[in-house]
Design a protein around this nucleic acid. Sequence first.
RNA 1: GCCCUGAUAGUGUAGUUGGUUUAUCAUACGGCCCUGUCGAGGCCGUGACCCGGGUUCGAAUCCCGGUCAGGGCGCCA
Length: 463
Amino acid sequence: MKLDEKFRTHTCGELNKKYVGKKVKLSGWIDSIRQQGKIGFINLRDRYGITQCFVGKELIEKIQGLRKDCVLQITGKVNARPKNQIKKEISTGDIEVKADNINVLTMADPLPLDDNATEDTRLKYRYIDLRKKELQEMLKKRHEAVLFMRNFLDKKGFYEITTPVLTKSSPEGARDFLVPSRLHPGKFYALPQSPQQYKQLLMLAGFDKYFQIAPCFRDEDARADRSPGEFYQLDLEMSFVTQEEILNLTEELFIKLIERIFPEKKITKKPFPRITYEEAMKKYKTDKPDLRKNKKDKNELAFAWIIDFPLFEPELENGNYAPMHHMFTMPKENDLPLLDKDPSKVKSYQHDLVLNGIEIGGGSIRIHDPRIQEKIFDLIGFSKEHKKYFKHMLEAFRYGAPPHGGIAPGIDRTLMAIIGTKSIREIIAFPKNKEARDVMMDAPSEVLPGQLDDLHISLKKKK
RNA sequence: GCCCUGAUAGUGUAGUUGGUUUAUCAUACGGCCCUGUCGAGGCCGUGACCCGGGUUCGAAUCCCGGUCAGGGCGCCA
């Protein structure tokens, strides 16, 4: 590793016996500082580890007033520790750096939280809490997992393509986040609930293997395993593909991901068991069963596929049908005649991936025939207004649509299920709270004076 | 929109059937001591009952309303 030597020659996790006698420069935060008469010790911390620095009497004045999390640069010589002082728990435990120069880069106020702090306090000062080893490790795992997904799919011939964040509102589904348009007063963009429509249009364009680490926005309330407001999903789609091929690819991705990034975890059954929706509801009374025999064993990962979902939820009072998955899901070919006779009996090509009782992803084979799509819109009870919203989709499918399908595992939720954290917030660098507030930034917030002037919007406050 | 739980020094907590409470303890913070510590140690000190109303001789404690936080229901194509 080549580091800029103005600030450091080595990291705080790097030095060991081999470096004894070397002159080094370290930069980092004070993890702890102890003074004992005319000598002192500073444990200097960075992302890579902690190195103990010895402060002799000639420098002792220099460290008066320093406290935890002040940022220092320490220059000195690496010394071996006496045998009885070796600390095996840390990577740098057999050496210490005898400081001959201490440069205070920035002072730190006393920290507003410590290791005992409740989650409330920790979220408010997330940037301090993130300094903790466990959280650094969590974000490292997330990085490694996402990088693995990218490399895996790249090798399989996928292109990563980003799709717009400022896009069009869609009826049905979750509540949209709306963004007022300055250039088009009275009109709004919506943030995407998923890149669903764009990825299907990419299939029409001929990009037969696509993926994206996609931000998704849904204005719905939180749960312990549901991040409110926004989340990321591994959105992927393929053309000329069967459901079987989608399941196999996804399965290979997850098995290799866990072998590589989480080798301590054991997958209970390979290939993943496949359970029909009907079977799951009958046997487990849920469509996301937890198949672990021993839930106390945190190392067990029980994956399962749920397939053969009904296309629709039970008929609504107004005679309409709500899609179980979404309105682009393909009915099973054999059930197509049932669309006219008894839509509630139609099964679909929907597939959900469940891990330890958490639904970590869902997908389907999509409709590529505009006539079927229009029939589904009718069954859902779309008005002319609603259909106008999707005019572009119906039109697009008239110009040559390949059969296609995909899946979209949630990144945060998958990691939560694999690692076994209680709350999804632990997996996210800057999570929102239950009410979708960012307590650290204090968002959402009031607009600044003048910000609404060009938007022709007036504010109505909640009572 | 609804239900449940909670809120005490900077942080985490004890105390909550109303009254020796001058509100407990730890940590952090400030001062002093200490030449091999590493969760350092010792002595001293500063610092708090979420907000508004009510009941009462007296409220951190009981009641009402609110705010904030967590979990659940609804919601999540």
